[in-house]
Design a protein around this nucleic acid. Sequence first.
DNA 1: CGTGAAGTTGATGTATCTCAATTGTCGTGG
DNA 2: CCACGACAATTGAGATACATCAACTTCACG
Lengths: 230, 230
Amino acid sequence: MTNKNHPCANCSFYEQSLWRPVAGANMSTLARNFTRREMEAGSVLYHQGAPSDGVYCVSRGLFAIRSFGPDGSSSLLRLAYPGELIGYRAFLTGRDHRTEAQALLPSRVCVVAQRDAKQVVRACPEVLTRLAVRCADELDLCHDRIQEAARSPNKERLAQLLEQLMAAHGTKDGRFERMHLPISRQDLADILGVQPETLSRLIKRLQSEGRLRTSGRWIEMPGPMQKHVI
Amino acid sequence: MTNKNHPCANCSFYEQSLWRPVAGANMSTLARNFTRREMEAGSVLYHQGAPSDGVYCVSRGLFAIRSFGPDGSSSLLRLAYPGELIGYRAFLTGRDHRTEAQALLPSRVCVVAQRDAKQVVRACPEVLTRLAVRCADELDLCHDRIQEAARSPNKERLAQLLEQLMAAHGTKDGRFERMHLPISRQDLADILGVQPETLSRLIKRLQSEGRLRTSGRWIEMPGPMQKHVI
DNA sequence: CGTGAAGTTGATGTATCTCAATTGTCGTGG
DNA sequence: CCACGACAATTGAGATACATCAACTTCACG
């Protein structure tokens, strides 16, 4: 049996796909209940407090996973790029979403509805293994973030964050890299856990140190440094 | 078939046990390769960077899950109480431990070695489901912590932390609760992500506000407040 | 070309870090 | 039982970082 019927077969993340191990009869189940959903920038995939209605795989674009406090304050817990899985925590635990997922760019997600996902997972434990591993990976990222927050000052954390964003969204331009920031200053501040005014001043400091140049949402940074042999 | 042969049958956390769904032939496998390990306070269950050698379930005592930075700085990522699972991240992903687990009190863990755990999980997917759910739960805790760090000031976070510790380790004494802190000031500081000097001053402030009294590792706090109807 | 939201700047108070010095705690051996 | 040392914890002083509030500017967009 070839996998040309696999709904993820044409996806560029097929090999890493959560659903990759699905085969046989389950593949038909999966194919039948598998939908793509196009989303415009700014629209929300699922809201905080909503019940789980399935598992989502980002196929194109970019999502922000946010959490809002009772007082209206917001945290940006992670960004989800194509190939990443979102909404699986609520699926795994059966509890409501504790975060909201908002598209930051025109995006596409592949959706497997709750009931069908459960059925496929039951029939194909290898899928569950992959799911658990992704969960463990995200746990690592959280741990890293907690440690970074305790270790490096916010200015350095911002520089790191911008480098990561540059790697994902930047284009080379001579010795410099340039990008259009996919997220607002407020979101940047929410990632670092500081106020927007503070973020603005952190950026100014990095700028005065010659580590970047900004103009609105455009940011320019010197490319990855050459390593010198001392 | 009764479950009197189940190695976790006598554990007070049996119903919630990861291995609870194991039955039949797998139960014998589990029972054969199941060991208990007593640990004295201060000893280390696994080191950061060590390869995974199984899954551990805390049966008695208390463990600190720590991470050390390249510069020697430490973070305390979580405390693990009886009934909780530790070391499963390395088991799930097959990568090395990124944290170390140290007993803070005389403790006991139940160990299922790598190879056997894998075999049982393969034969009994319900175990994997439970494992994934625990992972998702820990992810929630991490998210909560990141948000708390961004929202509440460190003084309030310390007060919350002490209340949690009091709930776990305190004993009522009239209108007050009293406990012997199971962790050092350095560890408390590592949980909050502040320096020990700052922690000392935060405690002093709480003390001057009458919210607690300390003497070495002994801490006394007024019990849970009566709710007043306005 | 106005209008509202997003972003910036300034001024000021609070919180935290850092380094150094001091005090306290606990186990050990005299 | 006490003295002692090693380490944990506290305190002080000064510098740095961040929050807050208000005013201002820039930007996106109709």
